[in-house]
């Protein structure tokens, strides 16, 4: 009895981490099925959507089958953890590590803090935002206000989601604050092209992970997961758009 339970635990833990931090559904299903097969279970079936995973397998004929599910509530973007879990599952399938070692590794991945500190992420958001404001037709002089505005929107989205756990409202508030900061900076005499600066301040909020995963999932036939990812990306974009619409109608 013990082994089946242990394998079920590590499979579901691996799946939970991957799905939570932004892996595609097909990758979760494939990884879990491979891990369960590598532990010599038969009749392995896995069904994952964007918000939950079902996994079932049987240990031996004539014995009880195991079937469990986990529900995933939070969806974040941390592709480093997905890569780490991928590595652990690869080692487990190849037989390099035992079930206990895999469990320990997975727990340490789940508990690990983010790979990059928060200030670096804000700084990176600033660089990305100012870079894109230049690429979309801004001038050299617009780099600085776009940097500041992008940092503002990144800080707002992180802090908002930390204290008020409301989905999609974080992006709305961030778009509003970033846009306001951009317009105020232009009024104060920094920068010339207000449009490009606002675009730069919004770029860190782009829902890149759900967008790419939606395409991937739809392609590999996970229609349910693909459509729900696409809906998530669409709602995020709409909340950014409504945030910026509010700014424009108030200030511009």
């Amino acid at each position: 009895m013990g082994k089946a339970d242990d394998v079920m635990d590590i499979c579901l833990l691996a799946g939970e981490i991957m799905l939570k931090y932004g892996a595609e559904t097909y990758r979760v299903e494939e990884t879990l099925e491979r891990m369960a097969r590598a532990a010599s279970f038969t009749n392995v079936h896995c069904f994952a959507t964007t918000t939950g995973i079902f996994l079932s397998f049987e240990e031996k004929k004539e014995k009880e089958d195991l079937m469990q599910m986990v529900r995933i509530d939070d969806r974040m973007q941390d592709l480093n953890k997905v890569t780490d879990v991928n590595q652990v599952s690869r080692e487990f399938v190849a037989g390099d590590i035992t079930t206990e070692e895999a469990h320990e590794k997975l727990i340490s991945i789940a508990k690990a803090p983010m790979q990059y500190p928060l200030w670096l992420i804000h700084l990176a958001a600033g660089f990305a935002g100012s870079g894109f404001s230049y690429l979309f037709g801004g001038g050299w002089f617009d780099l600085i206000p776009a940097f500041i505005a992008a940092v503002v929107s990144s800080v707002v989205v992180v802090e908002f989601e930390r204290y008020l756990k409301v989905r999609f409202a974080g992006e709305f508030a961030a778009a509003f604050c970033g846009g306001t900061a951009a317009i105020l900076l232009v009024y104060a005499g920094l920068g010339n092209n207000v449009d490009q600066i606002i675009i730069g301040s919004l770029m860190p909020l782009v829902p890149g992970v759900p967008l790419t995963n939606a395409v991937r999932d739809l392609m590999s036939g996970d229609l349910l997961a693909g459509v729900s990812r696409g809906a998530e990306a669409l709602l995020t974009s709409l909340s950014i758009a409504s945030g910026i619409a509010l700014t424009i109608s108030i200030f511009l």
Binding site: N80, Q115, L120, A124, F127, A128, S130, G131, Y134, L135
Partner: peptide
């Protein structure tokens, strides 16, 4: 200049999405 800025902006996005360091 555009290419260099694209490089910096893309690396910035990599940090935002927390991609592994070697990537």
């Amino acid at each position: 200049a555009e290419l260099l800025i694209t490089f910096a902006a893309t690396v910035g996005f990599g940090i935002i999405f927390n991609v592994p360091k070697r990537a």
